[in-house]
Design a protein around this nucleic acid. Sequence first.
RNA 1: GCCCGGAUGGCGGAAUAGGUAGACGCCAGGGACUUAAAAUCCCUUGUUCGUAAGAGCGUACCGGUUCAAAUCCGGUUCCGGGUACCA
Length: 805
Amino acid sequence: MPYRPEQIEPKWQAFWEQNKTFKVEIEPNKPKYYALDMFPYPSGQGLHVGHPEGYTATDIVSRYKRMQGFNVLHAMGWDAFGLPAEQYAIQTGTSPALTTAANIENFTRQIKSLGFSYDWDREINTTDPKYFKWTQWIFLEIYKLGLAYEHDAPVNWCPELRTVLSNEEVIDGKSERGGHPVVRKPMKQWMLKITEYAEKLLEDLDGLDWPTSVKEMQKNWIGKSVGAEVHFKIKDKIDLEFVVFTTRPDTLFGATYAVLAPEHPLVDQITAPERWQELNDYKEFCAAKSDLDRTDLSKKKTGVFTGAYAVNPANGQPVPVWVADYVLMSYGTGAIMAVPGHDQRDWEFAKQFGIEIKSILDGVEVSEGAQTDDGILAHSGFLDGLKVKEAKTKMIEWLEAQGRGRASINYKLRDWLFSRQRYWGEPFPLMQTEDGEVLPMDPKDLPLELPTVATYQPSESGESPLAHCDDWINLTLPDGRTAKRSSNTMPQWAGSCWYYLRYLDPHNDQAGWSSEAEKYWMPVDLYIGGAEHAVLHLLYSRFWHKVLYDLGHVTTKEPFQKLVNQGMILGENNEKMSKSRGNVINPDDVVKAYGADALRLYEMFMGPLEKAKPWSTTGLEGAHRFLSRFWRLYVEEDDKTTSRFTDNALDEATERLYHETVKKVTDDLEGLRFNTAISQLMVMVNHLTGQPQFNKNLAKNLALLISPFAPHLGEELWHRLKGGDTLAYETWPSYDPAKLVAKTLTIPVQILGKHRDNLVVPPGLSQTEALQLALKQDKVVRHLEGREIVKAIWVPDKILNLVVR
RNA sequence: GCCCGGAUGGCGGAAUAGGUAGACGCCAGGGACUUAAAAUCCCUUGUUCGUAAGAGCGUACCGGUUCAAAUCCGGUUCCGGGUACCA
């Protein structure tokens, strides 16, 4: 019988499901391994070929680790709150719950058709009240720590769509869908104090086995700056002062003006009466600026003079105080000391408005641009002669001694806007009384479920449809007061912040997870997913984990020990896959035509997991051809096991290749180098294809070696050879290092670094012996003619290089 | 602009404590089997010169270190990702 994946794949999938082959429980005496996929949002589009890439990688590792004796936790679930289902509900009136359930069913079918070894008894769904009960519980824990607060924050309101959009959904000031204008509108929002964890989030990156790019992105996002706060008093109004943050306190003597953000509270108090009109106009101008204007690259700096002067604390000189929107209220103190000689932004501003530009570095010219490099200080009083670094320290000491400032650290990271004006999300487990008091719900009353609503249309004011649900939103408290629930819900990130913990103990209704399970399974040993989550999901998740750690609910500081981003699979034309480009590959079609094993094998063979790579249908066919060849090693046309199997010992070449193969595949699996592991299996199969007979035991082990990549094929061949049930818990083949050593080696001989000939010799030759043999070879002799050997480089069993004159 | 990553045949990619560049797969060409085709199997395939033996060139570009560089160092170009007045 030829290779028929359409027959063997459903058969083994049914076997695994019926026998619960991959069900796991805590086994204290067994080492654990936790392999995690970024769980998908079950969209209406179904799976695309990018999903199986990461899932196959973790599945291969899971299957391999199981055969190595690890107790492997590998599960799948659904990040099922989200905008598309709600958008569909607005358009059609279909409940998001129904849409979501149908999509999950489709995703489940598709994922199961790929033969992943998930413990399906641990399946989770963020929209299931039994799940989000604990999302709400974690929110209450965060709230109780004082890390959640309400705040009037501007949101992206799209009047046309009557909905609030997340920043990601706003592109160049317009809605991603439909290109409608988006305006900033203040609304009361829940915020989480992630900034309180900035330092820990930064520090603990060091111990993680993550891609440097992701660590780098998180570092930049947190954006730590070390510097100082400096107090500036307003001239002639000695009771008024503002504080600036600077990373360059050493340049204080070069500060020739100061700038306040347009929203800075001091602006109104210090502005000279004759300038009020101008200042107000400018503030309005800034407030009206859209995101589009802000990203305008050709923009010029704008600003107005307040008419007031501040006193430079270093030299007592008056400096003009300006208002300009290049200073942001949301960073630092919303005010800066401007040092145009040594800061390019200040330089441009000063140039434009004719403000003095001063160099405070010895011999440094600043008329053509700011100079931000190190140098020797000058014109700086007590700092003269010092280098930048020393001057910083000394200035901070001086400021502290004078009570005019202190050392200070700032972060770019902002608090996390945690409310969405949407229906399809976790309701906040809080209520607000008529007199404004916020009361958390009693955890034993959780979950707070979503009510059914008559319409999914948001209100004109931008509130979610929950605002129309009078029965749900209005409460009477036992003490007789009335209270309201929030019509906001949590963002999609909430459910995905902790799902890896729910997998540990998914049916626990007393707690989100048991401490026993947490201690046994955590941390996640391998986490694979798309690079698009490099910052937000991974940062939010780390933040929640650290809060849970501080509360004693988890015992590891970090959730994900090793992280890998799979590269994107591009279309055959090397462009991003998209419907509009018409280059989308549907996994269902691939499975139907070539089988799941071929899809898995091909996706892993395309190239390094982390790299982007274009799809190739002929490449996929190659993978399928390889599996057919593999099959034909075992099975004859008449469906009988091949007559080529023997019990005879292996010949030397086959034996060595076999041991090399076990070593290479094992090492490559450890390093997630699936493409080269597969190529080694191909070399092995190519070799055996040329053999009239081969050892049956080798055939068995080869079935084990391929089974992580092509599990259905592996199971079927194993079953045909050995009978019995699954190979999932068989022992992974081992190799004998002694068998890796070849009896003869081919050693290149170079003359002046150019490869000229080879020596075919036994290993362990000495330099003298090698040289003697080389000098007997015609080619070597010919190239040495008329030359003198100056030096011979001999790397034992590797290379001989003759240096001649 | 800044930060990170990358550049190897016609294509995807192998090879880094520096040691035969191009494993493996795809494509292409040739052959076997077949009435024929498909499937399968075998061979060739970096490039130039040469009938051949062989020789020259070759890992984006320029230069350096070394007996030896895809690999290390300095500079340049191009591509991908992130970020955007963060003081």
